[in-house]
């Protein structure tokens, strides 16, 4: 991670509640990482992990601070440019497929919105469907495929327009352990093949250590980053890492950081 590609500078977010009190969701968030990196954000639920990537994707505006992606800076007043948005992909916690579109139409939805209709993109969609073994289901409707399949489609929809940055909001949270491991391995392969920058949100510490080059650990009330841990394993990573002692040490270190916060609250 050399030259900074994504920079988050002193970003804070205050939400106004319905009875007009304000909640500090995020306070002074600073992050910086290079192009092609894989970073994870872990933390207790409600610490604002999802809010951070929603601000990078410009779905939510920061109250203070600024975000710079590839030299373009945006904040509360300056919206992200259309061209820049098209270089970002967002993968939701739920697959969020539209039941009125077929699997392939769902995958192609970002292209439709960006007005990219060429044959070339059609092939990209087919290739992605093939890469997750779903080409045979291209004309099926979401109601006709399983939860794991839906999640795969949700993931490739986020990358069909070949984004430079992929934000993933606990994409495999609802899946069983073995499907999750399989999809994680698929993700690592896609990351290696495309050279995308991936920002991965999870509350699963092992998953974060297995996948990422760097893990940001967060604490809540207000949401803030308490540690930044570089995970030094060789690429490509395999599930074999799970049994290594070093892997266990990383997990322990992160779990302690999160656990400390929880223990202090239990009184």
């Amino acid at each position: 991670m050399e030259k900074p590609f994504v920079t988050i500078e002193n970003v804070s977010k205050i939400f106004q509640t319905r009875n007009r009190s304000s909640i500090a969701a995020l306070k002074d968030i600073n992050m910086q990482f290079g192009k092609g990196g894989f970073v994870s954000i872990v933390g207790p639920s409600g610490c604002g992990k999802s809010t951070i990537i929603r601000m990078i994707d410009d779905i939510i505006k920061p109250t203070a601070g600024a975000i710079t992606v590839d030299g373009f800076t945006y904040d509360n007043n300056v919206p992200i440019s259309k061209e820049r948005v098209q270089k970002m992909g967002f993968i939701f916690q739920a697959p969020n497929l539209y039941p009125w579109f077929t699997v392939k139409q769902n995958v192609m939805l970002p292209l439709k919105i960006y007005g990219k209709h060429s044959q070339e993109y059609d092939e990209v969609a087919d290739r992605l469907l093939d890469s997750v073994n779903m080409l045979g289901y291209a004309d099926a409707y979401p109601a006709e495929i399983s939860g794991g399949m839906s999640q795969r489609i949700g993931v490739i929809r986020g990358m069909v327009h070949e984004p430079e940055i992929l934000m993933m909001d606990e994409p495999y949270g609802a899946l069983d352990e073995s499907t999750r491991e399989q999809l994680n391995m698929e993700l690592l392969k896609i990351w290696k093949d495309t050279g995308m920058t991936i920002i991965f949100i999870t509350h699963n510490v092992e998953e974060a250590v297995l996948l990422s080059e760097r893990v940001y650990v967060m604490e809540s009330h207000p949401g803030r980053i308490v540690a930044e841990i570089n995970i030094e394993f060789d690429q490509p990573r395999t599930l074999g890492l799970l049994t290594e002692e070093k892997f266990g040490r990383y997990c322990m270190e992160i779990e302690n950081l999160i656990g400390k916060i929880d223990l202090s609250k239990v009184k």
Binding site: I59, F92, Y98, L109
Partner: peptide
């Protein structure tokens, strides 16, 4: 709201958002 958030994430315009998401 989840379905609409996908449209926001893709920065779909009003017409696109209505046709692809809100109306169906």
């Amino acid at each position: 709201p989840e379905r609409l958030e996908l449209m926001q994430s893709l920065k779909a315009n009003r017409v696109q958002s209505f046709l692809y998401c809100v109306f169906p």
